[in-house]
């Protein structure tokens, strides 16, 4: 299994996306799943690029695994411990004036993937998200 490593900034997004979507194509995931994978991956990466290293330089590592019943992606950073699955759920019922800017990204990670797990592995955060096939 090969891991893809890149610097944790927004400029790395297209290269990581190419890597993951390439792996997804090799695994023959249904075409309808691709936009969801694309979205969940972006939200995870943007969150790390924006918050994980608090302005300092750091890396993101991405690994993909394809099984007959699921395609999974593990994203690893060495920022401060943070479990994105425990983020507060946003209020989705407010009007335009009351709606805060932001806060939706991590919600998409859990609602658009079929399974999500977080582990703190030594000095690393590891978030794994899977799509059932």
């Amino acid at each position: 299994m090969t891991a893809f490593k890149a610097t944790a900034d927004l400029a790395s997004l297209p290269a990581i996306r190419d890597f993951v979507l390439g792996k997804a194509k090799e695994a023959n995931i249904p075409i309808t799943l691709e936009p969801k994978l694309d979205l969940v991956l972006e939200e995870v990466l943007v969150n790390i690029a924006t918050h994980a290293y608090e302005g300092k330089a750091g890396d993101i590592e991405v690994e993909c695994t394809a099984a007959p019943d699921a395609f999974c992606c593990s994203v690893r950073d060495k920022g401060a411990p943070f479990n994105p699955l425990q983020a507060e759920a946003p209020d989705l019922t407010t009007d335009i004036d009351a709606r805060p800017i932001g806060g939706l990204g991590l919600m998409f990670v859990t609602t658009m993937s079929d399974d999500c797990t977080y582990t703190r592995d030594g000095d690393a955060n590891v978030l794994t998200f899977c799509f059932s096939l």
Partner: peptide, 19 residues
């Protein structure tokens, strides 16, 4: 073809300004 939370953020910002 595609929109993420970053895109929604921009849309909401524009909507608040228009309102």
């Amino acid at each position: 073809e595609y929109i993420s939370s970053a895109g929604l953020r921009s849309i909401l910002t524009a909507a608040k300004q228009l309102k």
